[in-house]
């Protein structure tokens, strides 16, 4: 593929990085190599290229799963009042699909010798947790779901042109398709145009 980086060389680089990073995980790193001690940071390369995208994607998929877990718990508790069946189904189905998406990226990380990502993106989680705590009705829940789907979609949209491995491209593209579908139906449930823009711009991409 592009840049003259063959898949074999790419895999080799990933494995090499993983070997160095192994010690960092024990020091509280992992999920991208951030957060290790000062001493360790100097020897642990940050994830780059496709692996960095996989790491970010896994953190965001965990974010979606955690957010939807919270929303589903709220709906089951009756806090939002009567929740239309289709709304509960949309959230539950999207939750299940994000779990599958997470498995894709964790599979990539695991195969490259990296630790699986089991926690939500630390930068965005507090904000979304706060927003979820303020949801008081079905409309608010749908708005939060839409925001999550937009963040994930835009992140994949921005990442796809940067990916080297074509099967990572395909995985990101297929996941983007599903996340766009989630958005369309959420907008429909909100009473809005389900496909409002002719071209998708990644203005909510995480990094």
């Amino acid at each position: 593929m592009s840049g003259g980086l063959t898949r074999r060389r790419f895999l080799g680089a990933g494995v090499g990085a993983a070997a160095v990073a192994a010690g960092a995980a024990a020091c509280g790193g992992g999920g991208g190599g951030d957060g290790a001690s000062d001493t360790t940071v100097a020897t642990v390369p940050r994830l780059t290229g496709d692996l960095a995208v996989a790491d970010l994607a896994a953190r965001l998929e965990n974010l979606a799963i955690a957010t939807y877990d919270g929303l589903l718990a709220t709906t089951e508790a009756g806090t939002l009042g009567a929740v239309p069946a289709v709304v509960a189904a949309v959230i539950a189905t999207a939750h299940a699909q994000h779990t599958e998406h997470l498995a894709v990226w964790n599979g990539v990380l695991r195969a490259a010798g990296q630790p699986e990502v089991t926690t939500a993106d630390a930068g965005l989680a507090p904000t979304l947790d706060g927003m979820r705590a303020e949801v008081t009705d079905v409309g608010g829940a749908l708005r939060l779901v839409l925001l999550v789907e937009e963040i994930l979609s835009d992140t994949y949209l921005k990442a796809i042109p940067t990916l080297v491995d074509k099967e990572s491209v395909q995985a990101a593209a297929l996941i983007l398709v599903t996340d766009q579908q989630h958005q369309a139906i959420v907008r429909f449930a909100l009473g809005e145009n389900p496909a409002p823009e002719p071209l998708q711009i990644p203005d909510k991409a995480a990094s």
Partner: peptide, 21 residues
């Protein structure tokens, strides 16, 4: 070309979901 394809693909996916629904 990649950016355009991805951007357009995302919108086709929305159309697909809507017409399926």
């Amino acid at each position: 070309a990649k950016e355009t394809l991805a951007s357009v693909m995302a919108v086709e996916a929305q159309h697909l979901a809507v017409f399926r629904a």
